[in-house]
Amino acid sequence: MIVAGLGLRSGCDMQVILDLLHAAQECCGRQADLVAVPAFRYDEPGLRAAVAHLGLMLRGVTRAQLLAAQPRCISHSARALAATGVASVAEGCALAVAGPRSRLVVPRLTGTHATCAMAQGEDA
């Protein structure tokens, strides 16, 4: 399973998310099976539109899950830490949902108002 993790600001545009997902998928050489985001961003309109456009499932990640994944993240952002209390949102979401023995296949990519990372679960 390939999980695309996203971190995004409130009001992030659908096209920004689509562009980041496409860039991450090109780096990985595979399409994501699902998208994971922090639970506090789950209902963002641009996100929901992007995921629906691609026909992917969306999974919300709790704060506890994000915190548990942090030691496995390789990118850290002081801005994200100050804003959310988590230093690696996109990588944390991808790793949390892909499973405890998952690995990053695309470290954090940064776009306008969003970040994206991809993790591969054991079964992929």
Score class of each variant (00 low, 15 high):
I2N: 13
A4Q: 02
A4N: 03
G5N: 00
G5M: 04
L6S: 02
G7S: 05
R9H: 02
R9G: 01
R9N: 05
G11K: 04
G11L: 03
C12T: 14
D13W: 03
M14T: 14
Q15M: 08
Q15G: 04
V16F: 08
I17T: 05
L21E: 11
H22E: 15
A23V: 12
A23S: 13
Q25D: 12
Q25E: 15
E26S: 14
C27D: 15
C27F: 14
C28W: 07
G29N: 08
A32W: 04
D33R: 02
D33A: 07
D33T: 04
D33Y: 01
L34F: 00
V35K: 03
V35G: 00
V37N: 00
V37Q: 02
P38F: 02
A39L: 04
F40A: 01
Y42I: 02
D43L: 01
E44P: 12
G46H: 10
G46V: 09
G46N: 12
L47M: 05
R48W: 03
A49T: 10
A50E: 07
A52T: 15
H53C: 15
H53L: 14
L54M: 12
G55I: 14
L58Y: 03
L58S: 01
L58F: 01
G60D: 05
V61F: 00
T62S: 05
A64F: 01
A64G: 00
Q65S: 04
Q65I: 01
Q65A: 06
L66I: 04
L67H: 02
A68G: 02
A69L: 05
Q70E: 12
S75G: 06
S75V: 07
H76K: 15
H76G: 12
S77M: 12
S77E: 11
S77I: 06
S77G: 09
A78F: 08
A78S: 13
R79W: 12
A82Q: 13
A82T: 06
A83M: 04
T84E: 10
T84N: 12
T84C: 09
T84Q: 08
T84K: 09
G85M: 04
G85V: 06
V86G: 03
A87S: 09
A87Q: 08
S88H: 11
V89Y: 11
V89H: 08
C93T: 00
A94R: 07
A94V: 08
A94P: 03
A94W: 07
P100T: 06
P100E: 08
R101I: 11
R101G: 13
S102R: 08
R103D: 07
R103P: 07
V105R: 14
V106D: 15
V106F: 15
R108G: 09
R108D: 09
R108K: 14
L109G: 10
L109Y: 06
L109C: 09
L109R: 09
T110F: 05
T112M: 12
T115D: 04
C116Y: 02
A117P: 07
M118G: 03
E122Y: 11
D123E: 14
D123T: 14
